[in-house]
Simulated scan of single mutants.
Amino acid sequence: MEILLLVTIVIIAIAFINFKDYLNHPHKRPQINTQEDAQEINQYQNPYKDQPQPQELSREEKIRNSEYGLIVGLLAKLAQSDGKVCELESELMENTIIDIANALLLQSAMYQKDEILGILHQIFNTTTQSVEELTTHYAERTKGQYKSRLKLVEYMLTLAYADGELGANEREIILDVAAYLEIENSDFNALYDAYEKFYANKAQEKSLQESYAILGVREEDSMESIKSAYKNLVREYHPDILHHKGLDESIIEKHTQKLQEINAAYEMIKAHKNAQK
């Protein structure tokens, strides 16, 4: 045991002497050949040097390619498909764009609302992608979100019927979107038949006095204030595409009838005012 202890002490002493010599004589330390290493570094070829680096998307491109941007693109295709956009259709689109802008603001603090609104209007006015492309990209971003897809188709029917009838081009676009989004035939037919039945059995036009009452205005009010009241009511009753409800709370029952009543009243008052000029 004493021998083992003595050997241990000798080993520690030798190690200490060697370490002290290492510290006191730096010229004995192994030298790094910096010139050779630098030459090797300079000769190293980066295999990724000549490959194009991915460019960061602009804010407009990010929004345009998002779920919300694709919705605006699809609605633009639908609204412009018959060559005209009626006043109710325009108001519905504007309110939807505002809803989407508010949703984007909640997602990112990087944007300003005016900037988002400008981008969304730009998307609405300049979309060049086909309905198939837009819907395919939207389907990729809404996998497993069947209610979201169904809500979009339902809203497209509301927008298409804003002028009181479903045009042939509008019908084809909605059919294509429903097919690309794999909407069940039973669900689509329930929506389509309900809208068709509602507009086939529209109530007769109301009287002029009833129209003023519906908008909550007076006959002596200016057309400017009447139009403002009309816009406020459309904003109040417009269907919110971003909130997903089931078919039991259909747009037809909750919104369409009221919207058409408001629109018919406004059109009657507007015609009456124009006739008085």
Rank of each mutant, 00 (worst) to 15 (best):
I17N: 05
Y138G: 00
Q45S: 12
L157P: 03
A265L: 06
H243D: 07
A271F: 04
N46M: 04
E67A: 10
S211C: 12
E172Y: 06
K227G: 02
I98R: 11
E170R: 10
F19S: 13
I214K: 01
R64V: 07
E205V: 07
L105F: 06
E133S: 05
D99S: 04
N232D: 15
P26V: 13
K273L: 01
T8S: 07
K277E: 14
H244C: 03
Y195P: 00
E224F: 00
L159Q: 12
A265K: 00
D221M: 02
M223I: 09
T96Y: 02
K77S: 00
V217T: 12
I14L: 14
K28V: 03
L208C: 11
K202H: 12
I123S: 01
H137Y: 07
G164T: 04
E182C: 05
C86T: 03
I17V: 14
F198R: 08
H244Y: 14
F16Q: 08
K147R: 15
D50F: 06
L181F: 06
E165W: 15
L117G: 06
C86N: 14
I241T: 10
K258W: 06
L208P: 03
L75F: 13
K77E: 01
D163E: 09
L57M: 15
E60V: 08
Y22D: 10
K151S: 15
I3G: 13
N46W: 04
E220D: 15
I241D: 07
A264T: 08
E224V: 05
E87K: 00
E67L: 05
L215Q: 04
Q129D: 01
S130L: 07
Y230P: 06
Y146H: 07
Q260E: 12
L120A: 07
L88M: 14
H243R: 08
